[in-house]
């Protein structure tokens, strides 16, 4: 039997959840015995080359590109897992949800204290750039998500527990100490 295929991505996240995946330490050797990675920043495969079994999503949707990638993942993965608070509830990026988008952009590119040299007062508007959404959306409000691993980041033990449970078909243990929202 071929190995289960895993894909991962970071949408509007900080890559902390991916760091937490690496935090499984030497169990990563066990993991590469158990699974094969496809599209993921871990192996730098940019495009899906086959159907995957498990997709791990870090981060919520803050722009059109995030939505595109997320839908691509839904299409290519049998099981989608929201990993971390940003994927589950928008997380820190969603703290902009109460602020009008123009105010955010003006603060970032025109009026902010760290803005230097933008003499022409340009807010980036190249058509190549993804368009910001009106607010940051949790992944399950955009596509169907099958499982959730909360945490900021989710504890490495939780990710390990969830992955091994999904791969082996066993039930997750979810001990109290590892399921945390921070």
């Amino acid at each position: 039997m071929s190995k289960p295929v895993i894909a991962t991505t970071s949408l509007a996240g900080c890559f902390g959840c991916h760091m937490s995946i690496l935090d499984i330490d030497d169990r990563i050797l066990e993991l590469i015995e158990l699974v094969e990675f496809n599209k993921s920043p871990i192996d730098d495969i940019k495009k899906f080359t086959k159907k995957c079994d498990i997709g791990l999503i870090e981060g919520g949707c803050c722009n059109s590109e995030n939505v595109h990638v997320l839908k691509d993942f839904r299409e290519h993965c049998k099981i989608l897992v929201s990993v971390g608070e940003c994927a589950i509830m928008g997380g820190l990026p969603a703290m902009r949800n109460g602020i009008p988008i123009k105010e955010c952009l003006d603060e970032a590119y025109l009026n902010g204290p760290t803005v230097v040299g933008n003499t022409e007062k340009i807010v980036p508007n190249d058509p190549e750039l993804p368009i910001l959404l009106n607010k940051v959306y949790p992944c399950h409000e955009v596509v169907k998500i099958d499982y959730y691993l909360p945490g900021c980041p989710p504890r490495a033990d939780l990710i390990w527990d969830a992955l091994t449970a999904l791969i082996t078909g066993n039930e997750m243990k979810l001990p109290y100490e590892v399921v945390k929202f921070d």
């Binding site: 949800n97 998500i145 399921v179 929202f181």
Partner: peptide, 28 residues
């Protein structure tokens, strides 16, 4: 409300969060 646990000073001592843990809330 806007409950951003990772950025909250009360996280870990919060009763709402603790209830969510107790009832295994993974996502609302």
């Amino acid at each position: 409300g806007n409950h951003f646990c990772p950025a909250c000073e009360k996280s870990g001592n919060c009763e709402l969060q603790a209830l969510a843990y107790r009832f295994h809330v993974m996502a609302p």
